[in-house]
Every structure is written in structure tokens, then in C-alpha cells.
Simulated assay, not measured.
Amino acid sequence: MLKFFRKIRKGLVEERKISNYILYAIGEIVLVVIGILIALAIDNANEQHIKREKEQVYLVGLKKEFETSQTKLKNLIAVNKKSYEDSKKIIGFMQDQENLPNEEELSNLLYNALAFDISYNPNNSLLEEMINSGSLKDLSNPNLRVLLTNWISNIEDITKQEAMLDHERDQIITMFRRNGNSIKTIYDLTGVSGDLGLPVGKEQLSNLHLLQSTEFENNLLMFILTSITTETLHYTPLMQSMNEILATINGEIKE
């Protein structure tokens, strides 16, 4: 086409039709500009397509991570609840000395209350990679970017709360390291000794006297308070935040 226009231009110059030549020159410039704009539009469309494909890969990956993290949190909430509910049962026995549990029942309650660390470890590898590489900006939904940024901050707060809960648990466990109290009894009567390949004693040292200990009661009450606070003020809001993140991600994923 350009060759055709050049041929016309040559004819116009030879015929000295200057005004027509000027119009032709302008037309040729416009044609070139239009060609450039079309090329830029195509490049921009290709770039946007690549960005959207990249975003979809991130969204699918984030969805899998948060679904796994959601399952972990549900399980952790259940463990924490079992822990403080059995601790509350022990407090109940301490308030009713006429109906004390037997040694095996107390051992099971103590094991359920104190044996399991409460520590949330979400799957954040992809999210952290996106933040560190600056790829979080590739997500087109600004609300999702805010939610993901706040998520990291919330996890840091929960880690601090879990450290407080771990401290309260250690206060109780420390009491079993003293003479007169027996971790071995708990192990023997809950089956842990057998699981660990440890010999089961023929007689067990009783821990029932702890139900009359004010120190034990105080430590257990602080543990219960911290456990319930961890659930209501941290885990429950975190679960709500996770549900919102997953709903937003699902809304952005193209089927």
C-alpha cells in the first residue's frame, strides 16, 4: 500500500500539484499513525491478556492455600476447645469434693487439657512469595489486596496470643515436675506409655491431691481464660476473615 502511495506522490510532484501532494502527505502520515496505534493496541491487549492469565494462576494457587489453612484452623479450634472444656471439668471437680473423679478419669482430663500445643501454621508460601516479589499488585481487585495484607498482620497477632497461651500451659506442666506429682501416672493411664514403648508401672502415684491445690486451680483458671480468649478474640475473627478472602477469590476466578 505504501508503494502505491509513493507512486501517486511521484506523479503529483511531477504534475506540480502541490496542494494535492500536501493532502496526500498528510494522509500518509495519518495512515502511519493509525498503523502505530493499532500495533500498540495489539501489544497492550496481549500484555493485558498475559497479566490476566498470570492473575488467574495466582488466584487458583491462593484458593488452594487458604482452603488448606481453613481446614487447619478448624482442627485447631476443635483441639483448643477440647482443651479448655476438659480443663473446666477439672475445675468443676475442684468445686465439688464429694464427687471426685477416679485416677484414670483425671489423667484423661489432664492429658486432653495440656498435651497439645495450640499453634496455628497456615499455608502462606505463595502469598509471602507474592508480597516479597511485589506481585501482589498483579491482583486487579483492590479489596482482595487489602484483605491479604491484613491477613499477614493478623497472623502475627495470633502468634503473640499463642505464646501467652503456651506460657499458661507451661505454668501447669511445671507443677508436674515437682515431687508429689506424676506425669508417668498420666502416661500410664491414658495409654501414652504403651505408645512410646515405656513400661507401665504396677502402681501409679496419685495426682488427685491437685484437686485441692489453690496454686493448681489458679494456674488452670488462667489457662482456661487465655484459651477462650484465643478462640473468641483471635481464631473466630480469623476464620471470618478467611471466609471473606475465599469468597472474594472465588468471585475473581474465571471458570
Rank of each mutant, 00 (worst) to 15 (best):
M1S: 15
E15N: 12
K17H: 02
S19Y: 11
S19A: 15
N20D: 10
Y21F: 15
Y24E: 08
L31F: 04
V32E: 01
V33T: 02
I34W: 11
I34P: 00
G35P: 06
I42H: 06
N44E: 15
E47C: 01
E47W: 09
E47N: 15
Q48E: 13
I50W: 06
R52C: 01
E55V: 03
Q56K: 03
V57Y: 09
F66V: 03
F66M: 11
T68A: 14
L73D: 13
K74V: 14
N75M: 14
V79T: 12
K81E: 10
K82V: 02
S83K: 00
S83F: 04
Y84K: 10
I90E: 05
Q95F: 08
D96C: 06
L100N: 10
P101W: 09
N102P: 00
E104C: 00
N108T: 06
Y111F: 15
A115Y: 10
N121I: 08
L126W: 01
L127R: 07
E128S: 07
E129G: 11
N132F: 12
S133F: 03
L139F: 04
N141V: 07
P142M: 05
W151V: 00
S153D: 15
N154Q: 15
N154F: 14
E156A: 13
T174V: 11
N181K: 04
K184C: 00
D188M: 03
L189Y: 07
V192L: 14
S193P: 01
G197R: 04
G201Q: 13
E203W: 05
L205V: 04
H209F: 11
L210R: 02
T214I: 12
T214Y: 15
E217W: 03
E217I: 01
L220P: 00
L220V: 02
M222A: 12
I228T: 07
H234T: 05
T236K: 13
M239H: 06
Q240P: 03
S241V: 02
S241P: 00
M242W: 02
G251R: 06
I253Q: 12
